[in-house]
Design a protein around this nucleic acid. Structure first.
Lengths: 248, 248
DNA sequence: CGACACATTGACCAGACTCAAAGCTAGTGG
DNA sequence: CCACTAGCTTTGAGTCTGGTCAATGTGTCG
């Protein structure tokens, strides 16, 4: 195994984990020893399919991915968007059968880590097990926030809330700043994430532009009125757990 | 500490965990040694509040509870319903600050288990850590299914889906059978869980009665046409993970 | 240059919401 | 044992957010 890409991949993972918890030197070293297999993927390529029984977890190194489920009549629900540092299918470590799919949205580089190695790692390092566990718990917290948006926010508020979340998530891994971030997804993707139609998403975006809240062109989102966007969507970043470290 | 209620509480927990994983004798014994404090609560009483930093987890022994969040203008979103055997705030073990509340819906008996004891237990028994982790992952899977219902199902389908889920969940812990189960919650609770208004929930229930799918009277749900209910809501029980045990 | 995917717009429609009133039902106290 | 109450359920009429269908722009890539 070539160690250079391995180091890069595990560096990405360590950075992500340190954004939600504190790691000891021993734990960092243990992570660095994880074996990985790195793949380059095209856009719109399935990584794991609904019904699969994966034997690896997938660490995103570059590009965007999403988790989704296909329903009858061509309907699709997207559950989450993922960027560098995320392990979108960490849950497969303890849930045998996938109840949804994972796909790239853009060209992407991903690292596959064998379940076996992760099980061994977490058994040997209970502190790391807690950190990975914590990551999946934050994931669940994001689902709860999405449930609020779906259930009790208007389409306008919902779009605003998503933009706030994505901006902060990207900022946390150094992929955004100055109130601008890449958004390499289509309006149909946004619609499938928010439970709306593409047509209506488009109208909401028009209104946001009209109110000088955002610009969105060439897959680049610029937030022109951050405070107002926070306010209209009642956005409270607590659920992302980006500030607070775990109590250990 | 009185050992009789303790044994009852931990028996309930062991039963629940064994519905989603296999426990070794050693692991069962370790659970039985967990210290608990048992409380009787009235209906509509908060167990943990939004913003709290709990030091205990809560195991439900009897009655119903729900997780929820209050929003502006009196809006409320319910995230989940919980019954005997559930630990609704297991996540607080690794997420310091609650981003939502936990409340009883009926009179309830709950057992409080110190975080400290659970941390020690999971550090000493990585296998048990995996089982508790798995429980929170199943919880997240239920959130995903709720996201589908919110985003891509009609109100009618959504109500039907919820009823299927609750029936199976109750059946798994022996609280339901013969296509009937207790449903000790109001139509407003259902509305707040599904992102609908109480008025519309009522209309959907009328239609379900009219189509001889269910009866719902005196807090007792009777499913008269199980197959049809499954079909209209495209219900697939996989996400509840009630059949498959964890690969260990 | 052509093709394809994506974004935008318009006209019309429907599912779910709002507001308001009236009917039930399980407890409670006299 | 009955009357009263409070909370819950039911119903009606009118409204509105977001969906549907279909056509037209726009931009990118081979």
């Amino acid at each position: 195994m070539n160690s250079a890409p391995n180091q890069h991949a595990m560096g990405m993972l360590i950075r992500k984990l340190e954004s939600i918890a504190t790691l000891s030197k021993k734990e960092r070293q243990a992570i660095e020893r994880l074996p990985v297999r790195i793949h380059n993927l095209d856009a719109r390529q399935d990584i794991v399919r609904d019904g699969d029984q994966p034997t690896h977890c997938c660490l995103i190194l570059d590009g965007w991915a999403c988790r989704y489920k296909l329903l009858s009549e061509g309907k699709r629900q997207i559950f989450s968007f993922h960027v560098a540092g995320d392990i979108p299918d960490l849950q497969s470590l303890h849930i045998q059968t996938m109840d949804h799919g994972l796909t790239t949205l853009t060209n992407a580089v991903v690292a596959f880590i064998p379940h076996e190695s992760l099980r061994e790692l977490t058994a040997r390092h209970p502190g790391l097990a807690a950190v990975f566990w914590r990551d999946t718990l934050i994931d669940a917290g994001i689902f709860r926030e999405w449930l609020i948006s779906m259930g009790r926010r208007s389409a306008f508020e919902h779009v605003a809330h998503l933009f706030c979340e994505l901006y902060l998530k990207l900022q946390a891994v150094g992929l955004a700043g100055d109130h601008r971030c890449p958004l390499p997804i289509t309006q149909t993707d946004i619609a499938d994430a928010l439970g709306l139609t593409p047509v209506h998403v488009n109208r909401v975006l028009q209104e946001m532009r009209g109110r000088t809240l955002i610009t969105l062109r060439s897959q680049m989102l610029v937030i022109q009125a951050w405070d107002e966007l926070l306010q209209v969507s009642e956005f409270d970043p607590t659920y992302l757990q980006l500030e607070k470290r775990a109590a250990r």
